[in-house]
């Protein structure tokens, strides 16, 4: 899970989930606590989905 996905591709990660921002990849301080946690959950669920998806090559799960 990474914000600068071109770096993930360069270093060879296979399942890549784009995140929010470098200093808070899985959060957004502009949101209130509950909204922020919902956002984080959506991102983690996306990562779980990526883990369950067959891939042949490096893939960004938008």
């Amino acid at each position: 899970m990474c914000t600068v996905t071109p770096i993930s591709l360069t270093v060879g990660a296979n399942r890549i989930v784009p995140t929010i921002a470098i200093p808070h990849p899985l959060g957004n301080p502009a949101l209130d606590h509950d909204e922020e946690k919902k956002l984080r959950r959506r991102l983690v669920e996306k990562a779980l989905k990526a883990l369950q998806t067959p891939i042949d090559d490096q893939t960004i799960f938008e």
Partner: peptide, 11 residues
């Protein structure tokens, strides 16, 4: 402020 923003232990 909230380390879950980097390591999502809460979720």
């Amino acid at each position: 402020e909230d380390p879950n923003r980097v390591l999502p232990v809460d979720v």
